[in-house]
């Protein structure tokens, strides 16, 4: 009895943890299953039978693929913008001495601590007050996405950069590399994993955002907005195909990233 309770005590936490993980995956299983669901009654979330039709006709529902395209475009541009701005800021905050450090830190942290609905309404208030109420659309979405991705980029790149021994950059300067060469030959390659992680995070944040986008989109329709609208009209099963594809792409990227970092560590 004693040995059994010990065994259980040792593994109880692990078992609980695995159960929680399972809980996190339940909706994913549902999404994958429903992507093969044959069309039936109005509610597409009742399993009617197996079919591949949804996979073969992904773009069939009106606006699905065009909204997907819009989301990808905004995601890429927002990622580019936020990654560049955020990386520059992270370098300044870790490697340069300047006045108002702690307020700069707070300044970067605050957007992450602001509920999306508040950030979205502030931006809308600004755009409307500035007379852009009629011009809401791709541009205003992009501005807002760069904004909320920016803080995450700064934090991610900063974490990587803080772990980097400043002596490496000093060694480069000591070995006749000027500031430019030091950056491109030493700092950048070593911080790159952090920048890449920040970019991927930005893309997924941008791609997935609904609340802020919905307030500032005007007539533009992003993929999450399409899903939202579909919920009112009846959900096409193709949405679950997209969900499944997103899951597997993300999984692939995570696994590749893990393998790359393992290979680096192994060297």
């Amino acid at each position: 009895m004693n040995t059994f309770s010990r065994w259980l005590g040792d593994r109880l936490v692990l078992i609980l943890g695995l159960l929680v993980l399972l809980y996190m995956f339940v909706p994913i299983f549902v999404v994958i299953l429903m992507s093969f669901n044959a069309p039936g009654a109005r509610n597409s979330y009742t399993f009617n039978g197996f079919t591949l039709d949804n996979w073969l006709n992904v773009c069939e529902p009106f606006q699905l693929c065009s909204s997907l395209r819009t989301s990808i475009e905004i995601g890429l541009l927002a990622t580019l913008g936020a990654t560049i701005l955020g990386t520059l800021m992270a370098f300044a905050m870790v490697r340069h001495r300047f006045r108002g450090r702690s307020s700069a830190n707070l300044f970067v942290f605050l957007p992450m601590a602001t509920p999306e609905i508040v950030m979205g309404s502030s931006l809308l208030a600004l755009f409307v007050n500035a007379g852009f109420a009629g011009a809401l659309g791709f541009g205003t979405i992009l501005i807002s996405h760069i904004l909320f991705c920016l803080s995450f980029v700064v934090v991610t790149v900063k974490a990587r950069l803080s772990g980097l021994d400043p002596r490496l950059e000093q060694a480069a300067a000591d070995l006749y590399a000027n500031e430019w060469q030091t950056f491109w030959r030493v700092s950048f390659p070593l911080v790159f994993p952090g920048i890449l992680a920040a970019a991927l995070l930005s893309f997924s944040l941008s791609f997935d955002d609904f609340i802020i986008t919905n307030l500032n989109a005007g007539q533009e329709v992003t993929f999450p907005m399409f899903v939202w609208g579909a919920n009112q009209r009846g959900i096409p099963p193709q949405i679950n195909v997209i969900g499944t594809i997103m899951f597997f792409i993300a999984l692939l990227v995570v696994v590749l990233g893990e393998m790359a970092s393992r290979r680096r560590a192994g060297r």
Partner: peptide, 27 residues
Amino acid sequence: PYKRPVNTVFQSYALFPHLTIGDNVAF
């Protein structure tokens, strides 16, 4: 620093982890 004919062996070496030994020496 990159304009002086002075070189340093750093504490804990500060070898570039992303370069090979040969590239480190050639830097």
